[in-house]
Design a protein around this nucleic acid. Sequence first.
DNA 1: GACCTTGCTGGACACTCGTCAAGATCGGGG
DNA 2: CCCCGATCTTGACGAGTGTCCAGCAAGGTC
Lengths: 228, 228
Amino acid sequence: MTSTATRRVARTVRQIDKVDERRNHLAESALKTLGELGYARSSLRAIANNSEFSHGVVHYYFHDKFELIIYCVRYYKARCVHRYDALVADATTAEGLLDAFAAKLQETLREEAPMHRLWYDLRAQSMFEESLREAVTMIDRTLEEMIWRVVSRYAELSGRESVAGPAAAYGMLDGVFQQALLGYGAASNDRDDDGERVLATLADQVHGLLPLILRTDPPPSSGLHETA
Amino acid sequence: MTSTATRRVARTVRQIDKVDERRNHLAESALKTLGELGYARSSLRAIANNSEFSHGVVHYYFHDKFELIIYCVRYYKARCVHRYDALVADATTAEGLLDAFAAKLQETLREEAPMHRLWYDLRAQSMFEESLREAVTMIDRTLEEMIWRVVSRYAELSGRESVAGPAAAYGMLDGVFQQALLGYGAASNDRDDDGERVLATLADQVHGLLPLILRTDPPPSSGLHETA
DNA sequence: GACCTTGCTGGACACTCGTCAAGATCGGGG
DNA sequence: CCCCGATCTTGACGAGTGTCCAGCAAGGTC
């Protein structure tokens, strides 16, 4: 292999890194805009305005608007899907895990509300826009697994089995979280202590719901374990 | 009062009825379009194309696009918010109510999927669009009450108390229903029996979850009763 | 029959959107 | 030093949007 060839390869690799860096930078700007405006109202110009580039550069790094959006969503998911893993690893008692989980949910709501607004928006859009479906489905499955790591560990620490399967556990927790997000957004515009009450309610609900799905006595068949 | 005045009043009332009729007609066309295309992709022209009128008529009966959308949502809610009331009234045993509730949820998913897609879309949009917030919040509360009528009656028939309050019960059931809707939409494009499996899973989950929120023994304090 | 209100049409408007391409800029290799 | 390729800007294009409005048809009133 000639030295020029090696150098060219090295340069190409460096450029690919540079390109990835730019794409990530762009994705972060896009996520900021998407989180504020939502999917429907985020134009490429608005996204570019929130970055240090002009609107044309998007088509230099991404073929499509969809490609940008999907890249953004995957980029975001890769960052936050292990948010609760430390809790699972560090927990020693069931009650401790439950407390830490509820607190982390509150923190998520407080600090990452725009991102989760965006997530629910995109998930809703995926019901109409076929192109989003694949990425959304994959992320939803990943989130389900994330929640299941918490729930199954919680059951393990309790020395009991979970009555609910991964899907059911994710479904109910996602439901109460989404409700809290909705209330948190509506409250933050009015009064500030309303937001705190929403956070407290969320923690209470999680503290109340999770113990329920632990099997108590001789298990009656309960149909919560999905077959698939 | 002169006969001309009475006649004028009568005519005005008749016209108001006519206007309401037209608005409802328009709302139904709009709901059809909104259910298929979602909020973001539904233009006034597309809505008018699905009706027997031209696109200009919208501004004759509605001031705004928002006024039309919100009118549509309220119109829809008024139709379907008592869907489960018959179950509650007719139920004689807890198990019977549970079966009927699960079956009705399946029916809802099968026959009204577009409307519920739209609902979740609009609820997500309301997190970004202030104008939608009030209507969405009101409907969400109404749905919570609707679910609570079922759950509290279920607890009553069981002779036990519900551990979960209205918000927690609605949150978890809404979560599993939304998950089923998501899966149902994704499945209906692929295989038909996948849709049936989604329906079966939904029924299983409801059958598994609802008994859990019934208080078992001497109640430990569980924090699921929201304070507000 | 003339007239006027009401209901509705269809085109025009101002604007935003995604996309693209021609040209400016810049930095490293010959 | 110049050139060349990568990178970025800028402006334009066509399609699509909500909104508005001049005008037509119909049906009741004088």
